[in-house]
Design a binder for these strands. Structure first.
Length: 396
DNA sequence: CCAATTTGACCAAG
DNA sequence: CTTGGTCAAATTGG
């Protein structure tokens, strides 16, 4: 809601200041606890102190990471002078999208005349959808209406890749496209790569619809890669909306990067990075998520609809009981167009944060290792396209 | 009849 | 040249 990612420059400075502040406070807290630890306390008290100290250390570290992220952004987006371009793109921004629409239009024309296939520059992210075995034929649907425009066999892949573009591409100049490919390793898994954000106004139908209307076509929530951010206000912990649904938990996993977590950083089983919760709305910029657990449960709306044709999957009805659907996993992997890149050091910890942030950021980062696994539950209210995408024109 | 999908050709990038 | 992505005519389905 409020200006989402708008705060680029001053915002980052402020953010850095706040984070530094928090870091310092956490440090002091840790010292205080440590001091207490020396006293003649009982072992239990001592243990408690140890615990708090660990918590303080984690907090400090988390803040430090967040600061690193902020710095990375700052570094990556130097020309910060223009900060107000993009900004929110919440669903409702539709109206004001007029300006943006124009831009899109221009792109469309350009594309037409040039007929180039280059779509570099467009934000891109990948999601892995795992469908329940009971409905192997289903293709994960993200809530938008797509029109298939091609299919191709990909080298090394057992299954062909399907190419889809937004149904309203022509009508509304929506440039969103996606590629869907079934994993050769696991038939239940689909890799879906999205490119470009939707500029069309599709009305979100609830997943419920999908359930009740099997034949219906898409509609579902989006590939939400977006993130995590914030509006806590609207998040309720217990928010399990869903009447039906399947629930999934979101878990972030940074592939390939070793996050050096402290020993005390949360328990063993936990995942490296922080999970986050997400709102369904386009959040502002980043937030360092640090949820307590690695797996947050999020009501992500995800419905599987039966598109079907291409791979011949058609969603059986959703008779799959919710139970059977549990466990579906979605992995999100954001990838930015080429462009700025952040310095290595921090990249590892930033992994997931960056990814999401980059969605909102103008500049792009070259990072590509984060995956978000999440298990969500079908949510009747589709959150909506969160994409906080880069509204700005990708093409130079 | 309209709209979506199929499918092979075409084209650009690597 | 190979491969991935898109186009567009033909086809299918409602």
């Amino acid at each position: 809601m409020q200006d989402g990612a708008g705060a680029e420059e001053g915002g980052i400075q402020t953010l850095l200041a706040l984070l530094a502040d928090g870091e310092e406070q956490a440090r002091q807290l840790g010292e205080m606890v440590a001091a207490e630890d020396d006293g003649p306390w009982s072992s239990s008290r001592r243990a408690a102190a140890e615990h708090y100290r660990g918590a303080a250390r984690r907090l400090q570290r988390t803040l430090g990471r967040a600061a690193a992220v902020a710095r990375a952004f700052e570094a990556a987006a130097p020309g910060s002078s223009r900060g107000t371009d993009r900004s929110d793109d919440s669903p409702r921004s539709a109206d004001e999208s007029s300006g943006r629409t124009v831009a899109v239009d221009a792109q469309a024309q350009e594309r037409q005349s040039t007929m180039c296939k280059r779509r570099k520059g467009l934000p891109r992210w990948t999601a892995k959808f795992r469908v329940p075995e009971t409905s192997l034929e289903a293709t994960p649907d993200d809530g938008f209406s797509w029109r298939k425009y091609g299919q191709k066999d990909i080298l090394g892949a057992k299954f062909p890749r399907g190419y889809y573009r937004c149904t309203y591409r022509a009508a509304q100049a929506c440039a969103a496209t996606k590629q869907v490919q079934r994993s050769d390793a696991d038939l239940c898994v689909f890799d879906v790569t999205y490119q470009g954000e939707h500029t069309c106004h599709q009305k979100p139908r609830r997943a419920t619809a999908a359930l009740s209307a099997p034949g219906g076509r898409s509609q579902t929530p989006p590939p939400p890669p977006t993130p995590p951010a914030l509006p806590l206000e609207q998040q309720d912990p217990g928010m399990r909306l869903l009447g039906m649904g399947f629930r999934r938990v979101l878990r972030v996993e940074t592939a390939g990067l070793a996050l050096h977590d402290d020993p005390d950083d949360r328990g063993p089983a936990s995942a490296p990075a922080a999970p986050f919760s997400f709102p369904s709305v386009p959040p502002p910029l980043l937030h360092a998520g640090e949820a307590a657990t690695t797996t947050d449960s999020i009501p992500v709306a995800a419905a599987f609809s039966p598109p079907a044709s291409s791979y011949g999957f058609s969603a059986p009805s959703y008779d799959c009981a919710p139970a059977t659907c549990y466990g579906d996993v979605y992995d999100y992997d954001y990838e930015a167009p080429q462009g700025a890149r952040m310095r290595g050091a921090e990249s590892s910890e930033l992994g997931e944060v960056v990814s999401r942030a980059m969605v909102a950021a103008p500049a792009s980062f070259d990072y590509s290792s984060s995956l978000f696994h999440h298990q969500a539950e079908l949510d009747p209210h589709l959150p909506f396209p969160p994409f906080g995408g880069p509204p700005h024109d990708p093409y130079q």
